[in-house]
């Protein structure tokens, strides 16, 4: 009998990563019959599949985003519990990326492949803590896969925002955050670091904040940033959170003399700050930095690394320098700008 190759268990297709023996896709970018979904970000969790298996949180987040009927059949995966799909064993492990995010371990005939989705290892009370998973092949992203990326502790970054609100009480502090994960993490960081002032949120963040709150992640009092034409005093001493897309929209005009902040791993790079017109960059990322990526590769003990998206060339180079087999997968449809 021919020896099994990892590619027989999982390989890239235009629809996403496909598992022939289990007949399922992981994070497919187009509608499929059976999808396993790592987490709720829109480029990984899409509507229109027949059946979806994901953690209960991810399923709930998809229902919030796409409506309760986003697929025909839902199956909740419990973290750490193995489920058989057409004879292929599948286990979800926490990824630490956003609430409900998971790595998916796929096992068949003695081969273990771990699809990490997006993950991070920095402390974050709004997401389940990342666990390294032992495997033969580790599939990782490489959004911040360059040695220039070294994310500072988030408490240091949030302290900058709190200090700026105190220093410039008359300016409205507008913080760009993505609606799922980053928004709730920034709010929780503000609260955990002693910020007692009001937090105003753009309408697009509300439902997900409510969901986090209902899931036991306290965010404190949130107010809607809806004052039609703000006066200087309306938001003073407070922080306003909105999705970056809203910063290009008429919404932003209601704030007099805004001070633009942005919470993202990209805020390490000056040209990115300037491009976005950011005055207060906050390096708060829900992805791994370079150290975390390379540490994770070692922790899995994997002999082979497949890199999905981001700076794959550099991460593959690091693997080569460390005598680990690696190759880029060139998956399409995943974005690394939205972070």
């Amino acid at each position: 009998m021919k020896a099994m190759r990892p590619e027989d268990l999982l390989h890239p297709t235009p629809r996403g990563l496909y598992c022939p023996p289990g007949d399922f896709y992981i994070d497919p970018v187009r509608p499929v019959n059976r999808a396993l979904v790592t987490h709720g970000h829109a480029d990984h969790a899409r509507a229109g599949h027949h059946s979806v298996m994901a953690t209960a949180h991810t399923l709930a987040i998809m229902a919030i985003r796409y409506g309760a009927d986003f697929c025909e059949k839902q199956q909740a995966a419990v973290l750490g519990q193995t489920i058989s799909v057409n004879g292929v064993e599948v286990t979800f492990y926490p990824a630490g990326h956003v609430l409900g995010s998971a790595q998916i371990l796929v096992e068949w005939k003695g081969i273990r492949i771990c699809v990490s989705g997006d993950y991070k290892r920095m402390p974050d009370p709004t997401a389940e803590t990342y666990e390294p998973v032992l495997c033969d092949v580790f599939i990782t992203e490489a959004t911040f896969g360059l040695p220039v990326f070294r994310h500072p502790h988030p408490a240091l970054e949030i302290a900058k925002l709190i200090r700026s609100v105190a220093d410039f009480p008359d300016r409205t502090h507008l913080v760009g955050v993505y609606a799922l994960g980053k928004a709730q993490r920034v709010i929780r960081l503000l609260r955990d670091n002693g910020f007692a002032g009001p937090v105003f949120i753009h309408g697009a963040l509300k439902e997900l904040c409510d969901y986090y709150e209902a899931s036991g992640i306290a965010l404190g009092e949130l107010r809607a940033a809806t004052v039609a034409a703000g006066k200087t005093g309306d938001y003073s001493g407070g922080v306003v959170l909105g999705p970056p897309s809203a910063f290009n929209a008429p919404w932003v005009r209601r704030f007099p003399d805004p001070l633009i902040a942005f919470a993202s791993g990209w805020m390490t790079i000056r040209s990115r700050m300037k491009q976005r017109g950011v005055e207060l960059p906050l390096v708060i990322s829900d992805h791994c930095d370079w150290e975390e990526l390379t540490l994770s590769i070692r922790d899995t003990g994997a002999g082979e690394i497949w890199v999905t998206h981001g700076r794959e060339e550099a991460l593959v180079r690091w693997c080569e320098l460390n005598q680990i087999r690696a190759r880029p997968l060139h998956l399409i449809g995943y974005e690394d700008e939205a972070e």
Partner: peptide, 11 residues
Amino acid sequence: LFRLSYDFVGD
């Protein structure tokens, strides 16, 4: 790795 980084950062 330095070349790739410099390429990306630009300064």
